[in-house]
Design a protein around this nucleic acid. Structure first.
Lengths: 113, 113
DNA sequence: ATACTGTTTGGCTATATTGACAAATTTGCA
DNA sequence: TGCAAATTTGTCAATATAGCCAAACAGTAT
């Protein structure tokens, strides 16, 4: 049976991945990483969903510790809680392009017969 | 509104993250990365779930292109389809420990008052 | 106090995910 | 041919997730 340490590690990793595993949330992290802190209303404008929906996505990212918030008046700005996320996104992008390469090769092979 | 390119990138990233965002699946990838190709029955033994459940998790990972399979008799061995996954797991681990550090500091701050 | 803006939360429906069991499939072998 | 082992697939119930609307909440200014 699976080792207890391995199981706990798998669950911790899965929790972080789950927090990021949504197009809206990964977009939020990406755009904040590129442009710096943004408020809920600005993110809502860009995403085009209900404010409440965006707020809930932000709460998830804050909950896991990836984002932090700071209030200025009625406006809440969200920013990255740790720089490590940028490297993570970089590796994710590498995985993505590797998978894409494989996809292309498989397609070539299928066409070539 | 959100840029079309950004939206597509976010969805592609989310798809990969979703495939990995489950304790059982991230465990599977991790153990195969450490020990090499393993068959469904061996993985089932370690995970302790129904064979059909494990098989479905494997199908998800194969579907996104992270794993590949090869049949030997009635046995199916699953292996990593690309080495890039190891680096990805490494960065994930860094994120995790950074979040853990923050957690600790927050705890310290709470105790110290 | 009232009104206004920005944000979060309650409540609900719709959809997706997970996991087990049973049944079907594939392959090897007597 | 027929049995056994390994794996996949059909089906379904339980649970989780996502989204919206409406309502509550927090600041700011009139």
């Amino acid at each position: 049976m699976i080792d207890e340490t391995d199981r706990l590690r798998a669950e911790a990793r899965a929790a972080v991945l789950k927090a990021l595993a949504h197009a809206t949330r990964i977009y939020i992290v990406d755009v904040i990483e590129r442009e710096g802190p943004l408020c809920v209303c600005e993110l809502t404008r860009r995403i085009g969903a209900d404010t409440s929906t965006v707020s809930r996505h932000l709460a998830i990212l804050k909950g896991i510790g990836i984002l932090q918030d700071s209030k200025q008046g009625t406006t809440v700005y969200y920013s990255l809680a740790c720089g490590c996320v940028a490297d993570f996104l970089g590796e994710l992008e590498k995985v993505l392009s590797a998978l894409h390469q494989r996809e292309l090769r498989r397609y070539q092979a299928a066409v070539t017969g």
